[in-house]
Design a protein around this nucleic acid. Structure first.
Lengths: 167, 167
DNA sequence: TATTGTTATACTCTATAACTATA
DNA sequence: TATAGTTATAGAGTATAACAATA
């Protein structure tokens, strides 16, 4: 489907690593897959996440840990359930995630002002210190992963990606 | 970091599902995360993959199965090791993946013409029939997931995503 | 000596069912 | 009756080490 795998505006990178491989392979069989936005988004996500991990692994945080802590930093008092909805994580898995962050002394749980069942989540002092450095590292790594894009391209890409997932 | 969470070109969707939630929450704490290309790409990937799965799950194929079969369709004779490199799958995991596809009669393994260690992989007749329908379903689902983008936006987004992951 | 394919296995991530305390 | 948080556990996905056969 979608017979034109590559438009004229997307000149194929002239063969490069083919030397070590099969030499004459001009198409590696992924031409159709590259017509799918899902495939392209997944591959780009993979690339950016590996950049992220290189930059942030010194803090011993997975992407989901980082996201949880970042939301706590910018929305103190957020509940576990809200984090689950925002980040598409199931409650039982959020429990162990929060337990581990708590063990490390990075977060604080205070009684929710209006809902007796819930707990308000926020960063501890050391959590704030960690995230100040971690967000800097994440932003740097992210910028590094998109360094070959122009500022206008980055802005456009961000806008279009958000158009895909924000409803 | 990166204090301007949203540019003027990206008008915030007026509050909608806030009714059921906390009502007055204008920012949910994800503003910083949304400055990261990695976060945006991951979320968009999530959305597109779920579209894919809705459209393709009738064929009992995961995204990786679909990708493997698609490459076999368009590059018959491809080896297991090449699939591993193209799709970022480790060899031991590719073995069980191929074994399952083989059990279902979707693929054929023929001796590699030049390398006695490797096997050339291709689709069986039923594999071809399946993938003809599956690729149609995948393309339809993918188009559905990007239906609210203009043709120009889809083209731009595809180009920029590939610029991220194709080196 | 390096590489392909493979086995076995450990580890991590994700998902489901069921319980309690409160709304 | 519904929801927030939790426990226990099953299932799926990913990773490492080691081996035989061939390059």
């Amino acid at each position: 489907m979608t017979p034109s795998p590559r438009a004229s505006t997307t000149p194929r990178k002239t063969v490069k690593k083919a030397a070590a491989a099969e030499a004459v392979v001009s198409d590696n069989g992924t031409a159709y897959l590259e017509t799918l936005m899902g495939y392209n988004a997944s591959r780009a996500s993979q690339t950016m996440v590996s950049h992220f991990m290189r930059g942030v692994n010194q803090f011993d945080l997975r992407t989901v840990d980082f996201s949880v802590l970042s939301i706590m930093a910018h929305q103190p008092g957020v509940t576990s359930r809200q984090l689950c909805q925002l980040l598409n994580v199931l409650p039982p898995n959020m429990v162990v995630l929060l337990r581990d962050l708590d063990k490390r002394g990075l977060i604080e749980r205070t009684p929710h002002p209006t809902d007796g069942r819930a707990m308000g989540l926020s960063l501890s002092t050391s959590g704030k210190a960690l995230m100040k450095k971690a967000e800097k590292a994440a932003s740097d790594a992210d910028a590094q992963g998109t360094a070959h894009l122009t500022a206008a391209e980055r802005k456009t890409l961000t806008r279009l990606l958000q158009k895909i997932y924000i409803r």
